[in-house]
């Protein structure tokens, strides 16, 4: 493949927009939206490593997000240390927790695995919300804001570039995965584990590696999110809704593709932001409306476009190529 595929062009265009936007627009609302799109995109990309590439669909990835968020919140608020130490701690803890989940993925398949990941994140939620002495329990922890790069007390513009940097690294990891030996072997494991084993692929080890990598990437996202938002609420950071969000962005964008999670995030996060702005006056709030759309979209995408937006684009491209010929 020497030609530069259209998806890479699309990614490059998005990168250009995200890089230039903060130079032109200083509106906090727009920048906040951009940061969230990038963060949710990166987090969905992290989920994609396990769910999309290795086929291990977790509905408990909030566990790793929460680990990352709590690591930095506790490290900064309780121990007055650098959030970067919190990031490191979160990654280490998530690698351990990811190993546990990876082990589960070797014993359980399909819905059994999904159920076990939900249970895992629920256990962490209960620990975080009930262990008052250490985590401040259900009240949550405010993350102190100290201006500066090493304390991650950044301006909106700076946050755009931090989030963009992470998004770019995650995209790069997956673009590499798509054309590497490891990526092809993971695809084999995802498609049929027994067949992959017969062809000499150590499927169990590979799955654990993928889930662990995915967990560490999610944890980094959790740390950055906590630093950006400035507050860690156990019922949010460990919620099933959050786990599902990572999965949904990816499915809507296209599982097992580098661009998919970001496309999904652009669509879903913008929709959320738009509806939040539109319905903010109403008593019931925006949340319901956008989630109804979200849930319905998920059902429709799974049914009619199981390969997501990237798959749709491919089909459209193929159709146009045939029409041209």
């Amino acid at each position: 493949m020497t030609s530069f595929p259209p998806r890479r062009w699309a990614a490059l265009a998005l990168l250009g927009v995200a890089t230039l936007l903060p130079l032109v627009v200083r509106d906090a609302f727009v920048l906040d939206s951009l940061i969230l799109i990038l963060m949710w995109g990166a987090l969905s990309a992290a989920w994609n490593v396990a769910g999309g590439y290795a086929g291990q669909v977790s509905l408990g990835h909030a566990a790793f997000f929460g680990i990352g968020a709590y690591s930095t919140a506790l490290m900064t608020a309780r121990f007055q240390q650098s959030p970067w130490l919190g990031l490191l701690l979160g990654v280490v803890l998530s690698i351990v927790a990811g190993g546990v989940i990876g082990y589960l993925s070797n014993r359980l398949r399909g819905p059994y695995f999904a159920l076990s990941t939900i249970a895992f994140s629920q256990v962490l939620l209960i620990l975080a919300s009930r262990w008052r002495g250490f985590t401040a329990g259900s009240e949550g922890i405010p993350v102190p804001f100290r201006r500066g790069f090493w304390t991650l007390g950044l301006s909106h513009v700076a946050w755009v570039y931090v989030a963009l940097g992470v998004a770019l690294i995650y995209y790069g990891v997956e673009a590499w995965l798509e054309s590497s030996r490891l990526g092809y072997q993971l695809a084999g494991v995802r498609e049929d584990e027994d067949a992959a084993e017969a062809l000499g692929i150590a499927s169990r080890r590979l799955k654990i590696h993928a889930v662990t990598l995915s967990a560490a990437m999610t944890s980094v996202g959790g740390t950055l999110w906590a630093q950006y938002v400035g507050f860690v609420d156990p019922f949010y950071v460990f919620s099933i809704d959050l786990s599902i969000r990572f999965a949904l962005n990816t499915i809507i964008g296209g599982m097992g593709t580098a661009l998919g999670p970001f496309l999904g995030s652009i669509l879903i996060t913008s929709l959320e932001t738009y509806l939040r702005a539109t319905f903010s006056g109403l008593k019931t709030g925006f949340a319901g409306t956008y989630l109804v759309i979200y849930g319905t979209a998920l059902i429709l995408v799974v049914r009619f476009a199981p390969e997501g937006l990237t798959g749709l684009a491919d089909r459209l491209g193929a159709w146009r190529a045939r029409a041209d010929a």
Binding site: R109, T284, L298, R303
Partner: peptide, 24 residues
């Protein structure tokens, strides 16, 4: 007759939709 994952996501989507219809 679809994959496990398709079934999981369909019922998860249904769950989100119903929950939030109730919320709205």
């Amino acid at each position: 007759h679809a994959s496990h994952n398709a079934q999981i996501f369909t019922t998860v989507g249904l769950s989100i939709a119903l929950q939030n219809v109730a919320l709205v």
